[in-house]
């Protein structure tokens, strides 16, 4: 059997201030998988990924990338790894093309091989026209795509995407999804995705792990997880205003406003029954939709803790002008 793209055993991290970010987690991501690692801020996602790509030092545990133990041969393991971090982490003053070619150089890639690869990536990601401009002149979405191009320049077999579509508009986000799907399906690149857009994880990923307070609380297939959902809430838009929520036997109904009801439907309930009861009471429904993404409901129920969200993520700012002394 092929080695997993990523195998983590007993991974623990205690920061200098005593904060226990990871409490000995185990995780496997199979080759060719599109894997979601979800969790609230401060849950341990970025710490886990930071250890995998050597930005954070682990306190204990073992990490293997395609069977290569990072404690034995991290350099070899790194050849298989491409990283798109949460924060912009390139020199804002460098030219777009130089950023990617420099990264290729860090991997020992000869220029005659790196140049055509860079051109293809920039064209695929819609940045070719911007190649000679300074990175700081790019929009937020373009900067994210630049980081994806940079991460792919050395043809990694495992791509880590840490919130790659944060702050990206819907149209661009969907085009990025298409691109990620393509490199996963056509090139066989294994992908680990962290995101706060749960619709994104549901749409792209086949397997999922949910991490909370430094522990993996769920690790299963996306399909398997969604079958665990036992209640869905629909919003019903009404033709006429209502003063109070109607009684619908076997269902929970909440009045959102005079023209909208929230109908909670348990797994196995007959939705027709609810509509028949509403019709009998003279309530006409014009349209309906899910109140929240299905995965979001599960995620919130699994991770809702009194102090969840106390993040350790840090933001950085960038100087407007390059300085040198």
């Amino acid at each position: 059997m092929a080695e997993p793209a990523l195998s983590i055993r007993g991974l623990a991290k205690v920061y200098g201030n005593g904060f226990e970010a990871l409490k000995g987690i185990d995780l496997d991501v199979e080759q060719g998988d599109f894997f979601a690692l979800l969790g609230p801020n401060g849950a341990g996602k970025s710490t886990t990924l930071g250890i995998v790509c050597s930005l954070v030092q682990k306190s204990a545990g073992q990490v293997k990338i395609f069977g290569i133990d990072i404690d034995r041969d991290f350099a070899k393991a790194k050849y298989n790894l491409g990283v798109v971090p949460q924060e912009f982490n390139f020199s804002q003053f460098e030219k777009v093309e130089d950023i990617i070619l420099t990264q290729a150089g860090y991997y020992g890639m000869p220029m005659k091989e790196a140049k055509p690869r860079c051109e293809r990536l920039l064209k695929d990601l819609g940045l070719w026209d911007k190649r000679n401009g300074a990175a700081r002149m790019l929009s937020g979405g373009m900067k994210r795509r630049l980081m994806i191009a940079r991460a792919l320049i050395h043809r990694p077999r495992l791509l880590i995407l840490d919130e790659p579509t944060a702050g990206v508009d819907i149209e661009l986000r969907r085009s990025m999804w298409e691109y990620m799907r393509r490199i996963n399906e056509e090139e066989g690149t294994s992908i680990i995705l962290t995101t706060h857009y749960l619709e994104e994880a549901e749409s792209l990923c086949r397997n999922i792990a949910i991490i909370n307070r430094g522990e993996i609380i769920k690790n299963t297939s996306m399909r398997g997880l969604l079958t665990e959902l036992d209640t869905e809430t629909f919003l019903l838009d009404l033709a006429e205003p209502l003063e109070a929520a109607p009684q619908v036997e076997g269902f929970e109904v909440e009045r959102v406003d005079s023209h909208q009801l929230a109908l909670s439907v348990r797994k196995g309930s007959d939705l027709n029954d609810a509509f028949q009861q509403l019709t009998r009471q003279g309530v006409r429904v014009l349209s309906m939709r899910n109140r929240a993404n299905r995965l979001e409901e599960l995620f919130v129920s699994m991770t809702s803790q009194p102090d969840a969200g106390s993040g350790i993520d840090s933001a950085t700012s960038t100087p407007a002008k390059e300085t040198a002394s």
């Binding site: 991997y107 960038t318 040198a324």
Partner: peptide, 26 residues
Amino acid sequence: YSNVASSFFSNKFQRSVEEMMVSPMP
């Protein structure tokens, strides 16, 4: 002195030092 101090600190500040750290470069 100041070239390296300024350049490397800028790399730290802009986090572009991570580009080097994630690579297999010794």
